[in-house]
């Protein structure tokens, strides 16, 4: 299986997030990395060092864009300047697909810069679908929506989160960036079985998978991206790969960032699951 139409039929392998503390290592040592994920907003600027760094990375590595402020579920329309700059960056990186979150975060032009959860209602499905379609049409590349970690649930919800996700992606005809750590975090915070979620996801639409670590608090867990991946999350990852086939996988590590080699080694742990699945698929094909 070499990807699907939601990731441009790319089988990229295992990537890591491009982060400033690693720049020197990357440019000095030129490590072999399957691909880098960039945060789009960090490069949606006119000029200067960040774009120079990006261009140097693009000369050597494959890059996929991941956004944090498109807010597909916000009721207010996206800022045209945001879309213009995003498309400009898409042309620069030639990203095979682009992802952002299934959430909201701005209202009436004011931004919280957070990934706020949506109520799982039919109204929210309709609003979100409309916006995903509009962004996808404007950017002219496949868009994948990522499930977020959440800490609050809404009394008005009319379906489960995975039902909501499936409704949105089917109607918008878009891909999924399946974050198995987010599923785990939300499952603890909302007291559901995370494996039920993974088993319910529209597997044929999964363009990419995120893995990450999180932080435990007394009464809830927070998606902090500052720890290694825990075993229960690897179990969810293994099941996701089993269902989706080998899928481009990205380790997120955004806070208390260790050295490059440590982050890369943590990401490469995903290889055993990908390899196992590839072997099983090959055997089944014989």
């Amino acid at each position: 299986m070499a990807g699907n139409r939601f990731n441009g039929y790319q089988d990229l392998g295992i990537g890591i997030g491009l982060r400033i503390p690693h720049y020197r290592h990357i440019f000095d040592k030129k490590p072999v990395v399957d691909w880098f994920e960039i945060i789009s907003e960090n490069f949606m600027i006119d000029a200067g060092r960040p774009l120079k760094v990006l261009d140097e990375i693009l000369e050597r590595y494959r890059v996929v864009q991941h956004g944090v402020s498109m807010y597909f579920g916000s009721v207010t329309a996206p800022d045209p300047e945001h879309l213009r700059r995003l498309k400009q960056l898409v042309r620069r990186t030639k990203t095979p697909w682009l992802s952002d979150h299934l959430c909201w975060g701005s209202v009436d032009g004011t931004y919280t810069h957070d990934l706020l959860p949506l109520p799982y209602t039919w109204e929210a499905v309709e609003r979100t679908v409309e916006r995903v379609r509009m962004v996808q049409d404007f950017l002219e590349i496949p868009v994948a929506v990522e499930n977020v970690s959440s800490y609050a649930a809404f009394s008005g919800s009319e379906m489960t989160e995975w039902e909501f996700l499936n409704e949105v992606v089917e109607r918008a005809d878009c891909g999924i960036l399946l974050d198995v750590n987010n599923i785990y975090v939300s499952s603890v915070n909302h007291e559901f079985d995370p494996m039920v979620y993974v088993n319910a996801v529209a597997a044929h639409r999964v363009a990419q998978i995120h893995i990450a670590g999180h932080s435990n608090y007394e009464k809830y867990i927070l998606d902090t991206h500052d720890h290694p991946v825990i075993d229960p999350v690897w179990d969810l990852y293994a099941r996701a790969i089993e269902r989706c086939g080998p899928t481009p996988t990205l380790l997120e590590w955004d806070d208390r960032i260790p050295g490059f080699d440590e982050v890369h080694a943590e990401a490469k742990k995903a290889e055993r699951y990908l390899t196992r699945q590839t072997v099983q698929l090959a055997e089944a094909a014989r």
């Binding site: 919280t112 810069h113 706020l116 609050a152 649930a153 009394s155 007291e191 009464k219 809830y220 927070l222």
Partner: peptide
């Protein structure tokens, strides 16, 4: 608009986002 769970009240769940907003900003 927020539902409680067995460990957190609606107020406490909303408070997580309130704190995160300010820490980030």
């Amino acid at each position: 608009f927020i539902a409680p769970n067995s460990r957190l009240t609606a107020f406490e769940r909303l408070e997580i986002y309130n704190r995160q907003y300010w820490f980030r900003m």
